[in-house]
Design a protein around this nucleic acid. Structure first.
Ligand SMILES: [Mn+2]
Ligand SMILES: [Mn+2]
Ligand SMILES: [Zn+2]
Ligand SMILES: [Zn+2]
Lengths: 138, 138
DNA sequence: TAGGTATTGATAAACGTTATTAAACAGCAT
DNA sequence: ATGCTGTTTAATAACGTTTATCAATACCTA
């Protein structure tokens, strides 16, 4: 969907974007809902889903389709990569250079018009590492 | 989950693996169900889910967590990358060199113990390209 | 063959997301 | 200010995918 001229900047939209911009945790729609509800207790979950979707469509935020059962959202729209902890499911940014050239390599190797790519690393976060070390002593 | 010594090789398991191995289309659980049902008409959808999960756990197949609403399965377990058509959702292999070194780069740039990575390209497949060209003439 | 475990098919339940709808709201023209 | 018109909301129902439950069945081994 495109940005329509008669799309309004409602309080709900502003606050959803503000709350998402506050964190670097790539929250799920439900987590955004919880964050926003502290400021707008009467907001509906559907409103959060609808507006996250809308903002992702116009490019104000990113919708991440990473592993796990839920979609996640990201206020950082510049291209970058992510890690997902195999143990707890947490998603963090991986700040390494974006492989711009790889799209052309992929296009040559396929029948697709390549539009972009995303790298998802899998690993164990430092928190889960600590826990495992403690229990792995046995 | 690990391969248990008392895990049986049932007809259902064999046929699910055989059917998945026949295709390169990265089918969803439901699509595998349809394929398997032609040979085992009385199999339950739960059995398909259960065994795809099990085989992915022991590493006989891959469970792909790519974009879209459904998980997909892949009998090719060697590391490789994928494209997903933004238009029709089809998933294909991208046969380019696997970036082995990138895991170490990512590990240095993060607090994670990196275990692996996956690249998902997005693009438009040749089928959808043709359709769009035809309609885009107007 | 008999007993014990693993697995199945059927079905219900859970989960995340999307669709529906009446009411509320925001801008605009009178 | 009042009414008109289209947008958005909150509440809730519906949906599609996946997982859980469980009695019946199949398999293994002694
Ligand atoms: Mn990010
Ligand atoms: Mn593949
Ligand atoms: Zn973790
Ligand atoms: Zn396509």
């Amino acid at each position: 969907m495109e940005q329509l001229p008669n799309m309004r900047l409602t309080t709900q939209r502003q606050i959803i974007l503000e709350e998402l911009s506050k964190v670097t945790s790539h929250p799920t729609a439900n987590e955004v809902y919880d964050m926003v509800r502290r400021r707008l207790p009467r907001i509906g979950l559907g409103t959060v889903y609808r507006n996250l979707e809308l903002m992702a469509d116009v490019g104000v935020i990113l919708k991440l389709e990473v592993g796990g059962t839920q979609k996640r959202f990201d206020a950082t729209v510049e291209p970058h990569y992510h890690v997902r902890c195999s143990s707890c499911g947490k998603v963090d940014d991986i700040d390494i250079a974006v492989q711009e050239q790889i799209n052309q390599v992929a296009e040559k190797a396929s029948n697709y018009k390549i539009l972009g790519h995303h790298i998802e690393f899998s690993g164990i976060c430092s928190d889960c590492m600590g826990k495992n070390q403690e229990t792995d002593i046995n």
